[in-house]
């Protein structure tokens, strides 16, 4: 039982990261139906911004988190303006290929600028262990979990209760109708990219802090896992991405903990396949006919 609880804590910490990255996938998909494969690399850039800010400027964890989120928001908007906006009326496959191109550009560019090797993220937050009976939780795990929850609550509030959130929902339902109603569609899409990228940036800093190892290719696998999390919960649906992220993190941990770590990725992909067969719209998704 102790071990199970311990594994759940490990799983939720890992799941928090997936959930934060998955939110960006799902929001961008929800609004322009683009699977932004460069999203995992934004998460990587977030980690690098945090790394530079903490090592070169000597700032602490929370300033680094905020700066990294702001930096990633800016990068996300820039990418959208340069790479995706000109293709908004092109076929979906064109935008998808472009996203893969952007992903490679960011990876190779970071390798060129920051070096290809692993960098050590400084230990900017004292890591202490708190014991609950035999279960140990580190302060870093608590920080990861609480930052994730706070950001999710803030996002839910933003989407459901604010004017800009209403604009986002309107554009995601029907961009043309939204434009007729006076919604600035371009600004809303940019805003969506900014929010999604900021969340990925936060995840990057959290991962840097938790594992203290970052490298230019660190976004690839978590990017794919987060994408699976988004699909699992129903792509385009915000609570679905949160649920999916935590679920994938916990499943991965339990498979490694009770079976073999060689199987953890296989099981995650197997879940994806089963979901796509049984419930293509995702766990929380509704089967709606696509308007053509």
């Amino acid at each position: 039982m102790t071990q199970f609880l311990q594994q759940m804590i490990n799983g939720l910490s890992l799941g928090s990261i997936y959930a934060l990255v998955a939110l960006g996938y799902t929001m961008v998909y929800g609004i322009i139906k683009l699977i932004n494969f460069a999203h995992g690399d934004i998460y990587m850039l977030g980690a690098y911004i945090g790394f530079i800010v903490t090592t070169k400027l000597g700032l602490g964890f929370f300033p680094a988190l905020v700066i990294s989120m702001a930096g990633c928001a800016l990068i996300g908007v820039t990418i959208e303006r340069i790479a995706y906006k000109p293709l908004r009326n092109a076929t979906r496959i064109t935008a998808l290929i472009t996203a893969i191109g952007v992903s490679y550009f960011l990876e190779a560019g970071t390798q060129r600028v920051m070096g290809a090797g692993v960098q050590t993220f400084p230990n900017v937050l004292a890591n202490e262990t708190i014991m609950f009976g035999d279960v140990r939780i580190s302060t870093q795990q608590i920080v990861i979990f609480s930052v994730t929850i706070v950001l999710m609550v803030a996002l839910t509030f933003l989407v459901n209760k604010t004017k800009v959130g209403r604009a986002m929902r309107a554009v995601s339902v029907d961009p043309d109708a939204a434009r007729l109603m006076g919604v600035n569609v371009d600004a809303t899409i940019s805003f969506t990219f900014a929010i999604g990228s900021a969340l990925a940036g936060a995840a990057g800093v959290l991962v840097g802090l938790y594992y203290n190892s970052i490298n230019p290719l660190m976004g690839m696998l978590p990017g794919i896992k987060a994408f699976i999390a988004a699909v699992f919960g129903g792509i385009g649906i915000i609570p679905g991405a949160m649920l999916g992220g935590f679920f994938i993190g916990v499943v991965e941990t339990l498979v490694a903990g009770y079976w073999s770590s060689l199987w953890k990725d296989a099981v995650v992909y197997l879940i994806l396949i089963v979901i796509l067969i049984v419930k293509p719209a995702g766990l929380l998704g509704k089967n709606v006919k696509e308007k053509v």
């Binding site: 594994q7 490990n10 799983g11 991965e252 941990t253 490694a256 903990g257 073999s260």
Partner: peptide, 20 residues
């Protein structure tokens, strides 16, 4: 005997298993 893959960063789950 357990295994990890190149590029893995999270070993907590397996180490938790080993611990007992």
């Amino acid at each position: 005997t357990d295994y990890y893959s190149k590029g893995d960063t999270d070993f907590n789950s397996v180490l938790t298993k080993f611990k007992d």
